[in-house]
């Protein structure tokens, strides 16, 4: 594998992360924000895989497994929160949930 290929892979991780970040910033639908967080986590995992492949060490893939576990736990809790918000506010607008009330 040539370094250009490796750098292109790292670049791809950067592009995907940036797309996820843009989406988190511009979207108001809370499900889309969750999806964007998934995109960003995936991009971070891709960067770890590239690094592990570059140095021929298993550590990058181990980190990817950890990221995968975290993403699974995060998405389950996040979806439960989205369900609660939808049942209480009857909307998916993230701006609607800006009041703190016990």
């Amino acid at each position: 594998m040539t370094p250009a290929h490796m750098e292109a892979a790292l670049m791809l991780a950067g592009v995907l992360f940036m797309l996820g970040l843009i989406s988190v910033l511009i979207r108001r639908n809370i499900i889309f924000m969750l999806i964007s967080v998934e995109i960003m986590l995936n991009a971070a995992g891709l960067a770890f895989i590239v690094a592990g492949s570059k140095w021929v060490q298993p550590d990058g893939q181990v980190m990817f497994i950890f990221i995968l576990t975290m993403a699974a736990a995060e998405v389950s809790v996040g979806l439960a929160l989205i369900l609660q918000i939808y049942h209480q506010l009857k909307t998916l607008d993230s701006d609607a949930a800006n009041l703190m009330k016990g």
Binding site: M1, A9, L12, I31, L34, I35, E38, N42, L46, I49, V50, G52, S53, G60, Q61, F64, I65, L68, A71, A72, V75, S76, L79, I82, L83
Partner: peptide, 30 residues
């Protein structure tokens, strides 16, 4: 991309967990 980077097991995990489990979970909630 993972496969071309020499991480075939991670490619399988990506398909199973990300494209399988997580997306299906979001679809159920929708």
């Amino acid at each position: 991309v993972f496969f071309t980077l020499g991480a075939p097991f991670m490619a399988a995990l990506e398909v199973i967990i990300y494209a399988g489990a997580i997306v299906v979970l979001i679809i159920f909630v929708i």
